[in-house]
């Protein structure tokens, strides 16, 4: 079979390509890094191992007559035109949960880094300012706070598990509450969306994006939030109205940690870049070295299942299995 494997631009491309050659011995493998390279390779490709950095458009799919299977090496399939794939009978699968622990850790890191003025004081110290008084006036414990988790899927659950020992109160909201036994074991209380925003000191978003959820966190939600509270978004940029976020950061929030932006990378005039109380990361919450390995392993396993005519996991399109 002919494979096209899209690798994320990283220092480890050569190493990863070598590994793939070994795992898929006997097949032809084209390793590509850009959309143009992918378009070129797709013409003769049977199986595409795709990543979110390079879109797979309708045109791409239509110009790939042999394509049977798209395995996304990641947790989301938003970059693939699923409709076109379905029309062409192509199976699309992704990887589930492989980054949940990494995102959960990222949220905790962000929370702690915002509760203590970590970034500012690090900068001050490097600039020669020993600003202990301002640290002492700001640094807060996580213990005793109320933490709201919006979306109780895998990531939400991993996050809840890790937060409990911090001596916090855990609230959550989701379309479907967990079974009562699960809630009790995890110390989670289901509340309305309104109560989640009113009652939490920290809110972290972990809901999947659907068009109805566009800017679902807007002025109304921010106005319900407590003074001095924190918003963390590692889910999808489109969930949060950026203008309302800026206003809230100026007027009431202690801070926000944002891992996802509507345009990545952000334009230099994005006002978020100017906010002193925002912690920004390059959409990396779920891609630690360990998560990358888990994702790669899960993707390869699925490809091997496909080659073996076994049912594949996490299918989004096609695949009667």
């Amino acid at each position: 079979m002919n494979f096209t494997v899209v690798l994320p631009p990283s220092e480890r491309v050569a190493e990863q390509a070598g590994l793939l050659q070994q795992l898929l011995a006997g097949h032809r493998i084209a390793v590509v890094l850009t959309w143009e390279e992918q378009a070129q390779a797709l013409r003769t490709t049977d199986i595409l191992v795709s990543t979110a950095f390079v879109p797979v458009t309708r045109e791409d799919i239509l110009s790939a007559p042999q394509l049977k299977f798209i395995q996304v090496a990641g947790v989301g399939v938003d970059h693939v035109d699923l409709e076109a794939a379905a029309e062409k009978g192509i199976i699309v699968a992704a990887v589930a949960g492989a980054n949940a622990e990494s995102v959960a850790e990222h949220v905790i890191m962000s929370t702690l880094a915002l509760l203590r003025p970590l970034i500012a004081s690090h900068g001050n110290l490097k600039d020669g300012r020993w600003d202990l008084p301002s640290w002492m006036a700001q640094a807060q414990d996580l213990a005793g706070k109320t933490f709201g988790i919006y979306g109780m899927g895998r990531i939400g659950q991993e996050l809840a598990k890790r937060l409990l020992p911090f001596r916090v109160t855990l609230l959550y909201h989701d379309l479907r509450p967990l079974p009562p036994d699960q809630e009790r074991l995890r110390g989670l209380s289901f509340v309305s969306k309104e109560m989640l925003f009113q009652g939490s000191d920290i809110i972290s978003l972990h809901l999947p994006f659907t068009p109805e959820l566009y800017h679902t966190i807007g002025a109304k939600e921010f106005s319900a939030m407590k003074d001095g509270s924190i918003l963390i978004n590692t889910a999808r940029a489109e969930l949060v109205d950026p203008n309302a976020l800026i206003v809230a950061l100026r007027t009431k929030l202690l801070g926000a940690a944002i891992d996802v932006l509507e345009s990545e990378p952000p334009p230099p005039d994005d006002p978020l870049l100017q906010m002193p109380n925002v912690l920004l990361t390059p959409h990396g919450a779920g891609v630690t070295l360990q998560a990358q390995n888990r994702i790669a392993q899960d993707a390869i396993q699925n490809v091997l299942r496909f080659l073996d005519n076994r049912p594949v996991d996490n299918v989004y399109v096609g695949g009667s299995s």
Binding site: P165, R184, G187, S189, G199
Partner: peptide, 18 residues
Amino acid sequence: PEVELWEAEQKSAAARER
């Protein structure tokens, strides 16, 4: 206030000490 958070606090503490 409409809802009390007492219950939630106790539920979390209970799970933590189980």
